[in-house]
């Protein structure tokens, strides 16, 4: 019988990853960091499922979707230091 330990964490990872990805795709520019934070939570849950010994597609799907949520969130979030300085100087908001 398949090991059920960690199944809840794997499902959680999948759900959080999907929500994060949807937020990134439809509202990314406005609330990109929310998708990024959900991506991080999804990855932590996938790690917990792995540690608990849960194998299977749900854990992998949760990991991949959470990673994608993190990546798409990061695209609207990450910029380097000089950009930030210059842009805040001119009152620029998102880049």
């Amino acid at each position: 019988m398949e090991n059920q330990n960690g199944k809840g964490a794997a499902i959680g990872s999948l759900v959080v990853g999907i929500i994060g990805l949807v937020i990134d795709i439809f509202f990314g520019v406005l609330i990109g960091p929310v998708g990024l934070i959900l991506g991080i939570i999804g990855l932590v849950l996938a790690s917990k499922a792995k540690k608990d010994g849960f194998e299977g597609g749900m854990r992998t799907a949760g990991f991949v979707l959470s990673l994608l949520a993190l990546i798409f969130g990061a695209i609207s979030f990450v910029a380097c230091i000089a950009c930030a300085g210059a842009l805040s100087a001119v009152g620029y908001s998102y880049y």
């Binding site: 990109g32 960091p33 790690s47 792995k50 540690k51 609207s76 979030f77 990450v78 910029a79 380097c80 230091i81 950009c83 930030a84 300085g85 842009l87 805040s88 620029y92 908001s93 998102y94 880049y95």
Partner: peptide, 28 residues
């Protein structure tokens, strides 16, 4: 916009990356 978007320092990323990877390895 002023504080959460933009603004990253490489060395912070280097140290944070090592810490994050180390914690995950330790977790497993």
């Amino acid at each position: 916009a002023r504080y959460l978007t933009g603004g990253m320092v490489f060395y912070g990323g280097f140290l944070g990356g090592i810490l994050g990877a180390w914690l995950e390895a330790r977790y497993f």
